[in-house]
Simulated assay, not measured.
Amino acid sequence: MRGTLVRKAAALGALAVGAVACGDSAGPGAASVTVLLTDAASAYVESALVDIGAVELIGGAGGPIVLTDDGTDGPVDLMELQGLATTQLAAQDIEPGTYTQLRLVVESASVVLADGVTFRDGTSEADLTVPSGAQTGIKLNLKPDDENGGGVDIAAGQTVLVVDFDVNQSYRLQGNPDMEDGVTSVSFQPTLRALVDDVAGSISGTVTADAGVALDVEGLVVSAAPVENTALEPFESTTATALVQADGTYTIYFMVPGEYDVSVEAGEGFTAPVVEAVTVGQSEDVEGVDFVIVAG
């Protein structure tokens, strides 16, 4: 099953509208690296526009390699990049070697709230302030859990790197969207993670309400957090999220191999036990990580 998912993701990336930086050939035996952008959604956001500028690859024998100066070629709606959907940020031939980080510059961000959700002044759209650190460049570790200092070996041939720009974690609503007072503001705190596509797996399951519990599970957030904490750069995360669908199912894609504690945010007055130490192997789709929400 995982092979099908990888082919689908690669095809979507090739078809997507994105800026491609094609540098001079790196010579015989060169490696080809492609950077794709994807997203985990938010139930309270209709449109999450972000403009990514320069994308660099750090490591190898020389200094940083500029893969592109204009990653998204203007604002792109992250809400259109859910599931396995991706858009291409950059593609370039490079020298084979060990590369430790990706660096991305976020130039602008804006938000349109979902239908029925408004700011306290009655509007639903806003331009957001990009933190200064994101404007100068967000560094994302490649294989940050590597005991030997991190980094990914990019050999001759094609390597696809995926950047997950998590809307649910990045666009933080201030106030209560479910109350009459609405949302006071949206704080933009870019939250991203990077991984190598061909070893990525997934976690999926169902979320249901226990008998007698009146709760609509659609739109609840399921999170997978690594069991072992690692040192992270500002704006970097190793936690992945997904929304529960109308039929009660969820799938968290693009999971780095490792052990995760998986939980669901059930909301005030409800709870569901954390599923601990879920192991995701290389290119493995882990199914049946299910939750039953109870009152309490």
Rank of each mutant, 00 (worst) to 15 (best):
G281D: 06
L232A: 10
A272V: 08
G219V: 05
L215I: 03
L243S: 08
V222Y: 01
V264S: 00
T251E: 15
G258T: 05
G258I: 01
L232D: 00
E265P: 09
E265A: 15
A272D: 00
V280Y: 12
E268V: 15
T241S: 14
A240L: 14
V244R: 00
A231I: 08
V244D: 00
S283R: 12
V275Q: 14
E284L: 07
G219K: 05
E284C: 06
V217L: 10
P226A: 04
A240G: 14
S283D: 15
V278G: 05
V278Y: 01
G248C: 06
E218L: 09
V289L: 06
V280R: 05
A242R: 05
V274D: 08
V280A: 10
A242L: 08
D216A: 09
S283M: 08
M255C: 08
E228F: 03
S223H: 07
T241R: 11
Y253E: 15
S237N: 10
V262G: 05
Q245C: 09
S263T: 15
D261F: 03
T239Y: 06
V256Q: 14
Y253D: 14
A240S: 15
F270D: 07
V217W: 00
E236Y: 03
G269L: 13
G281F: 07
E268G: 02
S263K: 13
V256M: 13
G281S: 10
Y260K: 01
